[in-house]
Computed example of a mutant assay.
Amino acid sequence: MFTGIVEELGEVTAVEQLAEASRFRLRGPVVTEGAKHGDSIAVNGVCLTVVETADGEFTADVMQETLDRSSLGALGAGSRVNLERPMALGGRLGGHLVQGHVDGTGEILSRTPSEHWELVKIALPAHLSRYVVEKGSITVDGVSLTVVEAAADYFTISLIPTTLALTTLGIKQPGDPVNLEVDVLAKYVERLLAAGVNPLHAEETQK
């Protein structure tokens, strides 16, 4: 489980093509400190399992399903990536609960700069629009953000200077893909309601 607060702007140093998968080598001295085989690290919002670490770099295998459902397949050597380690129990939840399970990809449609922030408009896949609400939370390339405007086929976010400087969202341009993860709580509520369960009285219903 992650919080959507990026710890480090890392870099892809190599991509090796495997059978229906790819092995990524990524540089991230901060997130690899103390990391070991089997640990999780979020890369642009995708939870990946560490294979090995050495000299501030780590490798991770990405299966075809993940390559198809996320923007990781478009990465190559030199690509910058957002990196985050899992949240620690007892730590502060600075963003919101993020699983690292990408629901789909969007495309940056426009960027409108202003004096103190930048408004970014992102295309929203039809199957995700019902989960995105004004002032709600959404994860974009692993960054926990607040939705400014939610339309049927797009949403907007405001990026502060810190986010622009310390994440890939500061360098992505119109036409670039981004990974999207909607708030998991909305999906659970939808599933309960579809089953005829009132989430507020689920315990009583089970009795």
Rank of each mutant, 00 (worst) to 15 (best):
V6E: 09
V6I: 15
E8R: 14
V12N: 12
L18G: 05
E20L: 05
E20N: 10
A21M: 10
A21F: 11
F24N: 03
L26I: 15
G28T: 10
P29I: 05
V30S: 08
T32G: 04
T32E: 04
A35M: 09
A35D: 10
A35V: 11
A35K: 13
K36E: 11
G38H: 07
S40Y: 01
S40R: 06
S40L: 01
I41A: 11
A42E: 03
V43P: 12
V43M: 13
G45I: 11
T49R: 05
V50A: 05
V50K: 11
T53F: 01
G56A: 07
F58S: 04
T59Y: 01
A60W: 03
A60D: 08
D61Y: 00
D61E: 15
Q64I: 13
E65Y: 07
D68P: 04
S70L: 00
S70V: 00
S71H: 13
L72V: 15
S79K: 09
S79E: 06
R80N: 08
N82G: 06
L83A: 02
E84F: 03
E84G: 05
R85Q: 03
R85K: 12
R85P: 03
M87N: 03
M87T: 11
L89Y: 12
G91D: 15
V98I: 08
Q99G: 12
H101K: 02
H101Y: 05
G104V: 10
E107A: 09
S110K: 01
R111T: 12
R111Y: 05
P113Y: 02
H116A: 13
L119H: 01
L119A: 02
K121I: 00
L124C: 08
L124S: 03
P125H: 09
L128Y: 07
L128G: 06
S129L: 04
V132D: 06
V133L: 04
V133Y: 00
S137N: 09
S137Q: 09
T139R: 04
V140G: 11
V140F: 12
V143R: 02
S144L: 10
L145S: 08
L145P: 12
T146A: 09
V148Y: 13
E149H: 15
A151P: 02
D153H: 12
